[in-house]
Amino acid sequence: MSARTTRKRARTEAEDAVKQELDAVDASTAAQHRDSDSPFLPTVGECDPRPNDAAPAPERDPEFWFSDGTIILVAKNVEFRFYRALLADRSPVFKALFAEQHPSRLEPIDEHHAIPCPVVPLADCPEDLRHILRAYVSGKQTSFVGATKPSFNQISAFIRLGRKYELNELYEQSRKFLKSHYSNDLEVWAKHTYWEPPNWAGNACIGVVNLARLINEPSILPTALLSCVYLDDLIMNGCRREDGSVESLSDEDLARCFKASRATRQASLAGVMRTFRDTVSPACSKEKSCALVLGGALQKMETHMELLMTGSPFRLELKNLLKRDGKVRTCASCTAMVEERMKKERAELWARLPELLDVEVPGWGNGVPQNGAA
């Protein structure tokens, strides 16, 4: 059997002209981009798209390199071939950026044809950009986060890049997701099983504080900072991002957490002691017995000290301190009184959170819910 040979299709004169024109564009715009004061050059914490001697060769993203894509986005050393119109229609910032002159190169669109694709450098990390492209490629934008349990990396990318590129729906839904967990409503916060949303790392609160600072959302700060406080020494490890970098609190917020660590625990323990003072209910049916049980509850605190020092002061199950042999030993009136005291102490501690954490939160503790607000 003879060897099969293939014949390369001859390039047309029109394609030669396009190639020459694109080569000229490349040469004339390269210097412009090197010296540009573009707002898309990186800020602190962003990836620098500009090449340097040690930069690895660009590589195609295995997930987002579409053979019919019309634009090439370059994040760090990763190239994404995507759809220009899809992003431009949803972002006025992308639309303006794509309208600028950029170097282009011919990319095949099928076996016989190639099209010029503008090559646009972005000061974003590929991991963040990938989350944005996933959100839009399906074409379903009614709910970006509502039907799923988004990861911290996803929410972080949606907020940072959503804000930067004015992807308003993506940004707003992610902002409301954060506010729904890091709530300014005590009843909502107390019902959460974990400090962070499900499947988030325990130190994600560090990144949440930084996001709250970035978008000027003070209502998130008290619970996010409180979560940081209860990290104790682990707070110094920071929060590792998807790209491998480590995100840390600012020096000012770190100092707040160190100062608040003692203050919040003192306030919490003082509230527990007031809850179990041996003054019985006016309607007590067994005054002497109940007074002894209440006094004994304070003595039991020593065996529960680890939980009292490390557990959330708003989720502590203190009713167990009234039990002996598995049963609550106070009368119904005194038991209800203790629960009411505990509720009052928690509400007062909640109202003091901004003060203890040294942050200003307009409307905090005035009983007006804010999480549903725009």
Rank of each mutant, 00 (worst) to 15 (best):
N77R: 01
K327A: 13
R9G: 07
N77A: 12
K176D: 13
Q101L: 09
R7M: 13
R81V: 08
K95G: 10
Y194G: 06
C239L: 13
D253T: 00
K179C: 15
D358M: 01
N77S: 12
Y171R: 14
E15C: 10
T330R: 08
V368H: 04
Y230P: 00
R329T: 05
L211E: 05
A54G: 08
A204Q: 03
F144H: 05
S183Q: 03
V368P: 02
A96M: 11
F80W: 10
M236A: 09
F152Q: 10
L356S: 02
F64V: 09
E317H: 09
L269P: 07
G45T: 13
A373L: 09
A270P: 11
A204E: 06
P126D: 02
W65R: 10
L87Q: 07
T275M: 09
T193N: 11
G238P: 01
K8T: 15
D23G: 14
A351D: 11
I71G: 02
Y194V: 01
S104A: 14
R213C: 03
L87H: 08
L106D: 07
N210F: 00
K288E: 14
L22Y: 08
I72K: 00
E242T: 14
F82N: 07
E127F: 03
V280C: 14
E127R: 02
N320I: 12
S2P: 15
N153M: 13
K149R: 12
N77P: 00
A201P: 04
R7S: 15
E306I: 04
C228H: 03
A3S: 15
P103T: 08
N237W: 01
A27Q: 14
T303P: 01
E13P: 01
A263M: 08
T148E: 14
P121K: 07
A157C: 11
L308Q: 03
H192C: 12
L178R: 07
S180F: 07
Q141C: 00
Y136N: 04
V246T: 14
A57D: 12
V368N: 06
S289W: 04
A291I: 02
L122S: 07
